[in-house]
Amino acid sequence: MTLNPWRLRLLDVFERVGTVRGVAAELMLSPSTVSQQFSVLEKEIGTQLFERAGRSLRLTPTGRMLVDKARDLRDHLDSIEAEIRDASSGIAGLVRVGGFPSSVEPILIDTVRSLQRTHPRLDIELREIEPRESTTALHQGLCDVILTVDEHDGTLLTPAVSVIPLTTDRLLVVVPEAHRAAALDVIPVSELADDRWALDLPGTYLGELVPRQCRLEGFEPIVAGRFSSYAVLLAHVAAGLSVAVLPALAAIRRPGLVRRPTVGLDDRRIVAVVRRPNLNRQAIIAVIEALREVAHTKVVTVER
């Protein structure tokens, strides 16, 4: 029996995403190519790995066992490669780091500056990426380290990755300076039921979280605008056109704005996510340590 590591990787992705189309989308292949490779893999194994469940496929017990064994094998091979690379180069080479938009300037850029001083042979490539797309980028190999938000929905809890807590990011209400609620020490979201709102784009972390919280508090937000840029969103609020809820990292001080704590919304838990084999790379360890040090300095206080 000869097992092809690439086909085992396809199987690993299938176990995580659950469909042939999902595997194809993540690895940028056609669904027919994925199906063909699964057929070849079954021939290599000499047993059935998939079974029909209505119009969908699911893994047989043998298929699930192979996923577990193959993941261990792939992680071991990756660890060997990492150790060999470090033995020859030390803390050097390219590390690709992804992070959500509001983390790039305050955390990631400062981290790169720190690493340039401490490890000048290390080359960091940054990528801006939404939290809900980040683990896919990690598994696709587009990033080596991801700075993301743990939404407590279990999406980060897979056997293939390690999650390293870094810091928390407070969610704040942001209103125009002349707003009636600006005099309050704490602004409940319900206080803004009659206001017009500036929101993040649909499908993003905040674009879904804020409307959901408004509904929990008994009202549907009146949407004045949706913006992918937090700078534009803040300008909209400062102009007196809307109110918003933003994480403290994004709600930077600017004229015309007031930031206040709120209630009912948990702080964001900011974490670094790495594929387990990469934890053996000295370069990855150096990046995580630098991220931890910088993130701890970014605890934001709210002015009165």
Rank of each mutant, 00 (worst) to 15 (best):
G98H: 06
I91R: 06
I164L: 11
G93W: 00
S102V: 09
R85S: 13
Q140W: 04
T111K: 03
V95F: 08
T118W: 10
T168K: 11
S89A: 13
L122I: 06
L157N: 13
H139F: 14
A137T: 02
E105Q: 11
V149S: 01
L166V: 05
I107G: 02
D86S: 11
S103H: 09
R132W: 13
P131L: 03
V97L: 13
S162I: 11
L108S: 04
T155L: 14
L115C: 00
Q140I: 00
R85Y: 09
T167Q: 07
R121T: 09
L138Q: 01
E133C: 08
L94V: 14
H139Q: 06
I107V: 13
F100T: 01
T155D: 13
T168A: 07
D144I: 01
I91Q: 00
T111F: 09
H119E: 07
G98M: 10
S88Q: 15
C143I: 15
Q140S: 15
L115Y: 04
H139T: 01
R117L: 14
L157Q: 11
L156Q: 01
D123K: 14
T167R: 07
T155C: 02
V161H: 01
R132V: 06
V97A: 05
L126N: 03
D123P: 03
G90S: 04
I107F: 02
D153E: 06
D110C: 14
I129N: 00
L142P: 01
V161C: 07
L156V: 05
E130M: 10
T135P: 00
E128I: 10
A92F: 04
R117N: 09
V145M: 09
I164Q: 03
G99P: 00
V104Q: 12
C143Y: 10
L94Q: 07
S89W: 09
A92P: 04
I109D: 08
V163N: 06
H152A: 14
Q140N: 08
I91L: 02
R127H: 13
S89N: 14
T158K: 14
E130R: 15
S89E: 09
L108A: 00
A137R: 02
T155M: 10
E151M: 12
L157I: 09
T118R: 12
P131H: 08
R127A: 12
I129V: 13
